[in-house]
Amino acid sequence: TRVETATETAWISLVTALHLVLGLSAVLGLLLLRWQFPAHYRRLRHALW
């Protein structure tokens, strides 16, 4: 049971790290898009909202 718990903890930390990385890359990508294509971003936002 001790090994299982350790594996579970490792998986949880791995998944958390993955989610953090994905979230950060998504935010960075959005910022980059907004910085590179302001007109396109505004049009996209206008279409979405």
Score class of each variant (00 low, 15 high):
residue 45 R to C: 12
residue 27 V to N: 03
residue 17 A to W: 02
residue 14 L to G: 04
residue 22 L to F: 04
residue 35 W to M: 15
residue 46 H to S: 10
residue 40 H to Y: 05
residue 23 G to P: 07
residue 15 V to H: 00
residue 45 R to D: 03
residue 38 P to V: 10
residue 7 T to I: 06
residue 9 T to K: 13
residue 4 E to I: 07
residue 48 L to T: 06
residue 40 H to F: 13
residue 27 V to L: 10
residue 40 H to E: 08
residue 20 L to A: 12
residue 22 L to M: 07
residue 21 V to K: 02
residue 2 R to P: 11
residue 15 V to F: 06
residue 13 S to T: 14
residue 49 W to G: 09
residue 25 S to V: 08
residue 35 W to E: 07
residue 14 L to N: 01
residue 4 E to M: 04
residue 40 H to R: 06
residue 12 I to W: 05
residue 12 I to S: 02
residue 33 L to K: 12
residue 35 W to R: 15
residue 48 L to Q: 03
residue 4 E to W: 14
residue 2 R to D: 12
residue 42 R to G: 13
residue 17 A to F: 13
residue 16 T to A: 09
residue 37 F to N: 11
residue 29 G to S: 13
residue 28 L to V: 03
residue 42 R to P: 06
residue 26 A to T: 12
residue 9 T to A: 14
residue 27 V to F: 12
residue 19 H to R: 03
residue 20 L to R: 01
residue 14 L to C: 05
residue 32 L to C: 06
residue 15 V to N: 13
residue 33 L to R: 08
residue 13 S to I: 12
residue 26 A to Y: 07
residue 5 T to R: 03
residue 33 L to T: 04
residue 17 A to G: 07
residue 36 Q to E: 09
residue 8 E to V: 06
residue 26 A to G: 09
residue 30 L to R: 06
residue 40 H to G: 11
residue 29 G to P: 00
residue 16 T to W: 05
residue 45 R to E: 04
residue 38 P to I: 06
residue 38 P to S: 13
residue 38 P to F: 13
residue 22 L to H: 05
residue 5 T to A: 04
residue 37 F to L: 11
residue 47 A to T: 11
residue 30 L to S: 06
residue 19 H to Q: 01
residue 46 H to Q: 06
residue 1 T to Q: 15
residue 5 T to L: 02
residue 22 L to V: 14
residue 29 G to F: 15
residue 24 L to N: 05
residue 26 A to C: 06
residue 7 T to R: 04
residue 47 A to R: 12
residue 2 R to L: 14
residue 34 R to V: 03
residue 5 T to F: 02
residue 24 L to M: 09
residue 34 R to A: 05
residue 47 A to L: 08
residue 31 L to A: 14
residue 44 L to S: 04
residue 35 W to F: 15
residue 35 W to Q: 15
residue 2 R to C: 08
residue 18 L to V: 10
residue 38 P to W: 06
residue 7 T to V: 12
residue 10 A to G: 10
residue 39 A to E: 15
residue 26 A to H: 04
residue 13 S to L: 11
residue 13 S to Q: 10
residue 21 V to A: 15
residue 3 V to Q: 01
residue 44 L to Y: 09
residue 42 R to K: 10
residue 1 T to E: 09
residue 30 L to M: 11
residue 20 L to T: 06
residue 6 A to S: 14
residue 43 R to N: 11
residue 21 V to G: 11
residue 34 R to I: 08
residue 38 P to L: 11
residue 16 T to H: 02
residue 37 F to M: 08
residue 18 L to I: 08
residue 2 R to V: 14
residue 3 V to T: 03
residue 28 L to Q: 02
residue 16 T to N: 06
residue 37 F to W: 02
residue 47 A to W: 14
residue 45 R to T: 08
residue 12 I to V: 07
residue 6 A to N: 06
residue 39 A to L: 11
residue 14 L to R: 06
residue 21 V to T: 14
residue 27 V to C: 10
residue 2 R to G: 09
residue 44 L to R: 04
residue 33 L to E: 02
residue 11 W to T: 04
residue 18 L to F: 12
residue 20 L to M: 10
residue 21 V to F: 14
residue 4 E to H: 08
residue 38 P to C: 07
residue 19 H to I: 15
residue 6 A to M: 11
residue 23 G to V: 14
residue 22 L to S: 08
residue 15 V to T: 08
residue 26 A to D: 05
residue 40 H to I: 07
residue 28 L to C: 05
residue 9 T to W: 10
residue 17 A to I: 10
residue 47 A to S: 12
residue 30 L to K: 04
residue 20 L to D: 00
residue 30 L to V: 11
residue 12 I to A: 09
residue 17 A to T: 07
residue 10 A to I: 07
residue 18 L to N: 02
residue 41 Y to C: 15
residue 42 R to L: 09
residue 33 L to P: 05
residue 22 L to W: 00
residue 6 A to W: 02
residue 41 Y to T: 13
residue 3 V to M: 01
residue 47 A to Q: 14
residue 39 A to G: 13
residue 38 P to Y: 13
residue 45 R to I: 06
residue 34 R to H: 05
residue 14 L to I: 06
residue 27 V to T: 10
residue 11 W to K: 01
residue 1 T to I: 13
residue 28 L to F: 05
residue 16 T to G: 05
residue 19 H to E: 08
residue 13 S to V: 15
residue 10 A to L: 08
residue 21 V to Y: 04
residue 10 A to C: 06
residue 27 V to P: 02
residue 29 G to L: 14
residue 2 R to A: 13
residue 10 A to M: 05
residue 8 E to N: 02
residue 15 V to Y: 06
residue 47 A to C: 05
residue 22 L to Q: 06
residue 37 F to P: 00
residue 13 S to G: 15
residue 36 Q to V: 13
residue 37 F to C: 15
residue 11 W to G: 02
residue 28 L to A: 03
residue 38 P to R: 14
residue 10 A to P: 03
residue 1 T to D: 01
residue 35 W to A: 15
residue 37 F to V: 05
residue 15 V to A: 07
residue 19 H to D: 09
residue 6 A to D: 01
residue 44 L to M: 05
residue 2 R to T: 15
residue 29 G to V: 14
residue 33 L to W: 04
residue 15 V to W: 04
residue 34 R to G: 06
residue 46 H to W: 09
residue 38 P to Q: 13
residue 14 L to V: 02
residue 39 A to P: 03
residue 37 F to E: 02
residue 19 H to V: 15
residue 13 S to W: 15
residue 31 L to F: 11
residue 8 E to G: 03
residue 11 W to L: 04
residue 32 L to G: 03
residue 32 L to D: 00
residue 43 R to L: 07
residue 30 L to T: 04
residue 10 A to H: 03
